[in-house]
Design a protein around this nucleic acid. Structure first.
Length: 287
DNA sequence: GGGCAGGTGTAAT
DNA sequence: ATTACACCTGCC
């Protein structure tokens, strides 16, 4: 079944854009398998949009469309791109990045995934999250596991967490799990709050700094004004808007707020993808 | 094997 | 107020 409103959404770019860590591509490269809620889902690239291969029939289409960020009230990627195209700089960016959507993922899984992401890279994050799921999550069909509930992570032995290659982040993960399991960090409430207030609350969690807080806001809590600045995004902004001159973090944040407003989250996704595709790290000085 | 990349917390100025 | 460094893992 072709999912409504997915025309112009690029499944590859969306799932490989560093916002989700649990999708796997089948060898042909045009079918992805992952977990949405408690369902194992398979999605296929299609010239007309995204095709839902399984579960077939039933009422899964609606929650899956919500997850994919294409229901109108979530802000649609096509609308975001149409608006961003007014920015002359984005005429250079969009040809490499068009079709990226911002997924509406489970805030709890996002919280832990991005705590793990600090000072880390995508392959290692992916490995850690997969190991957590296998070690502590409930099995679904086909060797796929749901991401473990907060109580399971809160009660896990440190040794088990270490086994998942979390390194020094293991205590952060367990502490965050205990906050959520104990009701002292209410993610649903953060989603309803104003973005700035939710950000303040996240910054009190050990292991969460500005970058991770912004990722949780954007990918898990639906706050599309958030603009996570990692090295790629910093490079892209400096290169495209400041002639390659270094800027301070807060200047980049202020620039994004002013320039992109409610589209900041989308802008960030495009700039991140652009930097990864087109910008190399600054060359080392000659030996 | 040593060097490096990647955010955050902490201790230093 | 900003700045320097340690933290863990995996890849080169």
């Amino acid at each position: 079944m072709l999912l409504p409103d997915t025309a112009g959404v690029d499944l590859v770019r969306t799932l490989d854009s560093g916002q989700a860590f649990r999708w796997r591509w089948e060898p042909a490269g045009d079918v992805a398998a992952g977990v949405i809620g408690r369902r194992v889902v398979r999605l296929a690239v299609d010239t007309r949009g995204i095709r839902l291969l399984s579960p077939a029939g039933g009422g899964a289409g609606e929650p899956i469309r919500r997850y994919l960020g294409v229901v109108p009230r979530g802000g649609h990627p096509r609308r975001a791109e149409a608006a961003l195209a007014n920015d002359p700089v984005f005429s250079r960016v969009l040809p490499h990045t068009a079709g990226i959507s911002i997924l509406a993922q489970d805030p709890w899984e996002i919280l832990i995934s991005f705590i793990v992401s600090q000072n880390n890279n995508i392959p290692k994050i992916t490995r850690s999250i997969e190991r957590l799921a296998r070690a502590l999550g409930e099995p679904l069909a086909g060797g796929v596991f749901v991401f473990p509930r907060p109580e399971r992570l809160a009660a896990a032995r440190m040794h088990t967490l270490r086994t998942c290659s979390l390194g020094y982040r293991a205590p952060y993960v367990r502490a965050a799990a205990r906050l959520v399991a104990g009701g002292r960090l209410d993610l649903a409430a953060l989603a309803r709050m104003e973005c700035h207030a939710a950000r303040e609350a996240l910054l009190h969690v050990p292991g969460i700094g500005e970058k991770v807080a912004d990722c949780v806001l954007l990918f898990g809590l639906g706050h599309h004004t958030a603009f996570p600045v990692d090295v790629c995004v910093r490079r892209a902004v400096e290169h495209l808007y400041f002639r390659g001159r270094p800027r301070r973090l807060r200047d980049i944040q202020a620039f994004a707020r002013e320039r992109f407003g409610p589209l900041a989250g989308y802008a960030q996704q495009h700039l991140f993808a652009y930097a990864r595709a087109r910008l190399r790290p600054p060359a080392l000085p000659p030996a």
